[in-house]
């Protein structure tokens, strides 16, 4: 290794030592945001590159994870805006409380030792949950991803998204309801509800 290469390695080291432990959650969040693995890999790489370029603006001692996720989310939002062919599948109308519970009971889903909702969710795999997330509009998906994958508080989400806490609270409230409806729609679309309510399923 040349002296120049060594110097560059030393330059990257502080960034990499903070970024490497975040890779798993960054990729997890990216996959929920963009749905496919190749797109998630691209998004994480793009965010890592932008974060490295902007690393001189990071204040040591502050929260690197929140700083990096802000960059990741911004990359996603700007990519989404560039690529409007992606549809917002779900209308933003009111969705009743306990949506998933009501649908599963109405459909006659039941399990031996579990509630109807638990029975349905137990049958949905990670891919199908991802498909349901992908049906949320981008801004709602971003808030829901930070909430579900990262356990960020409302205040931290507000910091990452650059919006007031009240906006996070109302988006998250609607995102949870939209996600319940999307989970139900995925279960219907993929024949899971029919299988669970077929005579031999009981």
């Amino acid at each position: 290794m040349s002296t120049v290469d060594s110097a560059l390695d030393i330059d990257r080291q502080p960034f990499e030592s903070l970024f490497t432990p975040l890779l798993s959650s960054a990729y997890g969040a990216a996959l929920r945001l963009v749905r496919t693995r190749p797109d998630a890999e691209d998004l994480v790489q793009e965010a890592a590159l932008q974060a490295f370029r902007a690393y001189h603006t990071f204040q040591p001692g502050t929260n690197f994870k929140a700083w990096f996720f802000r960059i990741l989310t911004n990359c996603f939002i700007s990519r989404y805006r560039r690529n409007r062919k992606e549809r917002d599948d779900l209308a933003l109308d009111d969705i009743e409380d306990l949506y998933l519970y009501r649908r599963t009971v109405e459909a006659g889903i039941h399990g031996l030792d579990t509630s109807p909702v638990q029975t349905l969710l137990g049958k949905l795999d990670e891919e199908q949950i991802g498909e349901a997330m992908a049906r949320l509009p981008a801004d709602y998906r971003a808030v829901a991803t930070l909430y579900f994958i990262e356990d960020f508080s409302y205040e931290q989400i507000a910091g990452v998204m650059g919006c007031p806490i009240g906006t996070v609270r109302s988006r998250l409230h609607r995102a949870r309801k939209m996600l319940q409806r999307a989970l139900w729609q995925v279960a219907v679309d993929q024949g899971l509800v029919s299988r669970l309510t077929a005579p031999e399923a009981s």
């Binding site: 990729y27 890999e41 890592a48 137990g122």
Partner: peptide, 24 residues
């Protein structure tokens, strides 16, 4: 239940190496 399932994600083994290459 949703949270548990959303978190079950395997990171591609070579992703960090690819990122390091781009940073280089």
């Amino acid at each position: 239940q949703v949270r548990d399932k959303m978190r079950r994600i395997a990171v591609p083994g070579d992703l960090m190496a690819r990122i390091q290459k781009r940073l280089e």
